[in-house]
Design a protein around this nucleic acid. Sequence first.
DNA 1: CGGACGTCGGTGACAAAGTCACGCAAGAGG
DNA 2: CCTCTTGCGTGACTTTGTCACCGACGTCCG
Lengths: 227, 227
Amino acid sequence: MSADGTTGIADWTERFKGTRALPRAVRDRLIRAARIVRLEKGTQVFGPDNVPDRLFFLYDGRIRVSQTSEGGREIVLYRVEAGDSCVLTTACMLAEEAYNAEGIAETDVTAVVLPKPEFDRLVAEAEPFRKFVFDAYSRRLIDMLRVVDDVAFGRIDVRLAERLLALAGDMKEIAATHQDLASELGTAREVISRVLADFQKRGLVQQSRGRIALVDKSALRALAESA
Amino acid sequence: MSADGTTGIADWTERFKGTRALPRAVRDRLIRAARIVRLEKGTQVFGPDNVPDRLFFLYDGRIRVSQTSEGGREIVLYRVEAGDSCVLTTACMLAEEAYNAEGIAETDVTAVVLPKPEFDRLVAEAEPFRKFVFDAYSRRLIDMLRVVDDVAFGRIDVRLAERLLALAGDMKEIAATHQDLASELGTAREVISRVLADFQKRGLVQQSRGRIALVDKSALRALAESA
DNA sequence: CGGACGTCGGTGACAAAGTCACGCAAGAGG
DNA sequence: CCTCTTGCGTGACTTTGTCACCGACGTCCG
């Protein structure tokens, strides 16, 4: 990690499936063309106000993409993990018809920013990169299908159990308010409160202010899979 | 219209924004590489069972893309209109992780089928075609955002009013059962029945078996826009 | 003509989810 | 300690979805 923020990363092209496979010459060109940016946790990466004209490869960190209704309710559409794929998807696509979707850095984030002409050139020249980009789109589209399915046909207790497990990962506790969880699932705070109260009564979780301990993960998993 | 089904259409490359702008030589190559297929109304264009390995340009007709839940409930995700864009989006993307989405020909359909290698070559070579493809993706993604927004935050009476107007177009009557409409919106038949009964009581529509007359379109529009 | 059957729509009772209007309690910062 | 913000609990009500059932209409066919 050097200090200057433009060439701070040894060779970021190593990080992405789509660039790893490229010839050395192309990779060097990319490294010259790209800039590295760092964003603090909580920063809006893109949104209705803030429409990016550049491409955005997530080198490190995590970005949450969510949508907000007129009524102020929010729902999380998907998350982008580092190396996993790029954010261009929602970012640039929606440039034109800026919808009410936004991307928020959930952690401190390091990203590679590529000017659009360079991106175009790359898509044209490099088959592996093209595949990478299409895969990214594909993944997003599938995520969205999943959201539609859940919201249209799923029960909230099941969805909440799923999400609690996902957010916890290996941890046994989550730091999130009821409102946070409501925003995850696109529902109301009161609904979450009630379901969590029920979970607690059933011994699945243990609540305290702003945090939820997953007491019986396997029972939660059973519930989550009773889809 | 000639008879042989392989060269039946004078010059389909004229039909799409993404191919119209290509050099004559490339267009001729495409015409040689592609096949023309016709599908009857009601045919499944793609689906969990029927995963296409080729690209699909909608020359004429309309395709409805919908998703079905385990419980058998269905929701329409979007429609693809002729010339407007290609269907590859959902079709090929989901090839890998065949989800429970399917495309149905809503009318008789004429399509241009392009082998994937030819498609790849085209994306690589031709900037206008690339833009065409990305625009198509973009459109789909925006459609999906809209669906999520509606389902998560919208009221069904409003959504139904919208959909009735959309389905009617210039017509003043729609041929659709309550179940059809329920599948459009991803809800249950009974719900549609109740809302329509209410609409009728308010003089907005007039029902008969399998058809709905939009009596007061402007009132419906008002309701639809009260989002 | 008159069943027989399949599709369509209506209904009531209930369950699940979302809305509204509160009020209380746990921290944070003086 | 007091105050203020933020998080949470609750009850009453509306909207939406589910279940079970029935009748009305149309069509096919004996």
